[in-house]
Computed example of a mutant assay.
Amino acid sequence: MSKPTITRDSERADRTTVRDRLSIPSWASVHVPLVVLVALSLSPVVLAVLMSTQSTVEIYQVFNLAPGTEGASNYLTVLTEYDFLTYIPNTVVMATIIVVGEVTFSLLAALALVYYDFPYKNVVFVVILLTLMLPFPVRIVPLYSLVTDLGWGNSMLGLSGPYVASATSVFLLRQHFRAIPDSILETAKLDGVGPLTFLVHVLIPMSKGILSGVVVINFISAWNKYLWPLIIVSDRQKQVVQVGISYIQGTADAGLTQWGIIMAGSVLALLPPLVILVVFHRPIVRTLGIQAN
């Protein structure tokens, strides 16, 4: 009686089955690394929130990762004793002024650079872009001298005035306007539409996505200002939230830094830009040129 033979096709099928069983699913190879990266990115925020609920003694217990017993007390202390009820509104006002100013000037500048012909237009645009090569610390001394000479020191105008123009916003809006078909401009000219009317009723409605992204990016950038407010404002009641956190760091309890209160202040400072970022994340993605589903 002859023994059964195994064909090459059956051997190949067996090997394929074993390989399929041992191989990692395609979804896992993509999602598992993403989940790990997201967890690593969120871990500092989670630790900050946990520490904001702990007392000084609990925080110095290195392996204590449980919610603490001083959550309400820490946040109440930050809001009342450390004047965050003043710093947060100050920061909101400053960020709002900066955003409104940047968007307004950037829209007008982009309109002129795209739809007007004037001598050395490209040179003007290059000069605007060159300002991005000058970091803020390089400009801080002449800027401080200018603001104080204008009498804007220790004021909201001095806080927000230097930031109401943005080369980045001008660049983004200029590139967006250049992508709008010329036929729309020609139609507007035939209808006798003026430049400001064309901007308000045509360009802005067609640019809602990128304008939303520019607003969010500029708001978050303005909210995180630290060095300039620290220099130009001398009155604590006129300070912003980022400088307010540094005020907390200068205090100590029995020789120990009050990290619980510092983290509570940091969480409060994080919440407004985080909420805006979550709500308007899609315009930001579109502004940065990334395709999102």
Score class of each variant (00 low, 15 high):
176 H>Y: 13
180 I>A: 04
237 Q>F: 14
176 H>V: 01
228 W>Q: 10
190 L>A: 10
228 W>G: 06
177 F>M: 00
195 P>E: 12
217 I>K: 06
227 L>P: 06
222 A>D: 02
177 F>S: 01
175 Q>M: 10
208 K>N: 05
228 W>N: 08
168 T>I: 12
221 S>E: 13
181 P>W: 02
194 G>I: 04
216 V>A: 04
210 I>V: 11
203 L>G: 01
214 V>G: 00
194 G>W: 04
236 R>S: 15
220 I>D: 02
204 I>E: 01
204 I>Y: 03
215 V>P: 00
176 H>F: 08
200 V>M: 13
244 G>A: 09
187 T>L: 14
222 A>W: 00
182 D>N: 13
231 I>E: 07
223 W>D: 01
187 T>V: 11
217 I>R: 09
230 L>H: 08
209 G>C: 03
200 V>G: 12
186 E>L: 09
169 S>F: 06
213 G>N: 01
193 V>S: 12
190 L>H: 10
187 T>R: 12
212 S>F: 05
224 N>M: 02
170 V>N: 03
210 I>W: 00
230 L>S: 13
186 E>W: 05
173 L>S: 08
230 L>P: 07
222 A>P: 00
170 V>I: 14
189 K>I: 08
194 G>P: 02
170 V>Q: 02
202 V>R: 09
230 L>N: 13
184 I>N: 10
225 K>P: 04
196 L>P: 00
223 W>Q: 02
196 L>C: 02
192 G>R: 10
200 V>P: 06
237 Q>H: 15
231 I>R: 07
243 V>L: 06
176 H>P: 01
207 S>M: 05
200 V>K: 11
224 N>S: 15
221 S>W: 12
241 V>T: 11
171 F>I: 00
186 E>S: 09
220 I>V: 10
183 S>P: 01
238 K>G: 14
241 V>N: 04
220 I>W: 01
213 G>L: 01
190 L>R: 07
185 L>G: 11
200 V>N: 09
213 G>P: 00
213 G>H: 03
168 T>R: 13
180 I>M: 02
174 R>G: 02
200 V>H: 12
204 I>W: 04
243 V>P: 00
221 S>I: 07
207 S>W: 02
229 P>L: 04
191 D>M: 10
176 H>G: 05
197 T>E: 12
217 I>L: 15
245 I>D: 05
191 D>N: 14
229 P>W: 06
238 K>A: 09
180 I>R: 09
176 H>D: 03
224 N>A: 13
177 F>H: 01
204 I>M: 04
172 L>W: 12
205 P>E: 11
205 P>N: 08
219 F>L: 10
192 G>T: 03
181 P>K: 08
217 I>V: 15
178 R>Q: 15
193 V>P: 03
